[in-house]
Design a protein around this nucleic acid. Structure first.
Length: 293
DNA sequence: AAGCTTTGACCTATA
DNA sequence: TTATAGGTCAAAGCT
């Protein structure tokens, strides 16, 4: 394993950019191993679970966290060339094969009818192997760049509100489905003429248990997501409080996991271009950043 | 006032 | 044909 960055690996897959109808599913982090607790503040507090053996973790020395965060797997990219919502998830391996065994998720391309055209939705299922892991993971392992829990477990407020994947999402429905005990929330991309949708399944405690992306965006990721028009919306769209709270929670649990939150903050800031004013309200972030860097 | 979430009803696909 | 489940619509209320 070289020191190839995760993003490089992803980008090397050579998949197309936006414009393809695809379904992309991120599932996992349910009852087993990794399941967030609700803190006293009502915000999720993440437990860690032992990730599967990850050869890619060897690359942690040359691993760029920012690149990792920019990877689509983090769902929080602002610069990534690929994104689950662009339908460009690099499920192919470096050699063009499905080497997703190297990744902390199992990717399954749901069978399509032989006559299915490229315009038909294709569903990618990404399952977090942590579901199969029950032993806790040392935080330092996670801090080595493959915090798959972090990757998929974007703060629920970010995911369910605006997804923090660079696109604007509007919730248009919620349904309690039989095959899952958790309700599903249905989101549409707010970009004009974009038919991209995503389904977010949340547990009763508000934790996201599954994200399904349906359809690709027919537009590039906006340089700046539509800025909230009201302060109330600003709080909802950006909602740094949840991030910060989570940061605090993690910093309480582990000084290493804090790094992840810090990067998440950075990524989050770049996502929205600027959140200084929010940061003003969260001196904790600055303090932690100074300590961390 | 605009845009969002909520939520029950409705539509559609499937067995 | 009917029942069921999943997905979407749209009115109402909220921020």
């Amino acid at each position: 394993m070289s020191s190839t960055s995760f993003t490089d690996l992803l980008a090397s897959s050579g998949v197309d950019s936006y414009g393809q109808d695809e379904d992309f599913r991120v599932s996992g982090y349910q009852n087993d191993g990794f399941y967030p607790e609700i803190t006293g503040s009502g915000l999720p507090k993440f437990k860690t679970a032992q990730p599967p053996p990850l050869p890619i973790s060897q690359a942690s020395h040359g691993f760029a966290f920012s690149e990792l965060l920019d990877s689509p797997l983090f769902l929080s990219s602002s610069h990534s060339l690929v994104s689950p919502t662009t339908g460009a998830f690099p499920y192919q391996g470096i050699n063009g094969t499905n080497n997703h065994s190297d990744f902390p998720w199992q990717l399954q391309t749901q069978p399509q009818p032989p006559n299915a055209s490229s315009a038909l939705p294709e569903t990618y299922v990404v399952q977090d192997l942590q579901k199969k892991q029950e032993d806790p993971v040392p935080c330092e392992f996670a801090a080595h760049g493959l915090r798959s829990d972090r990757q998929v477990k974007v703060p629920s407020s970010m995911v369910s509100r605006n997804s923090n994947d660079g696109y604007g999402w509007r919730k248009y429905g919620q349904k309690q489905v039989k095959k899952s005990e958790n309700p599903r929330s249905y989101f549409k991309c707010t970009y004009p003429n974009c038919v991209s949708k995503k389904i977010v399944e949340t547990a009763s405690d508000g934790q996201i248990t599954e994200i399904i992306y349906k359809g690709g965006h027919n537009h590039p990721k906006p340089e700046f997501t539509k800025r909230p028009s009201t302060s109330a919306n600003a709080r909802r769209m950006v909602d740094p409080s949840s991030v910060v709270s989570e940061t605090r929670d993690q910093s309480e649990n582990s000084s290493i996991s804090f790094d992840c939150s810090d990067l998440e903050q950075k990524s989050f800031k770049s996502e929205y271009g600027e959140v200084e004013e929010e940061e003003e309200d969260q001196p904790e972030i600055k303090r932690l950043k100074r300590e961390g860097g």
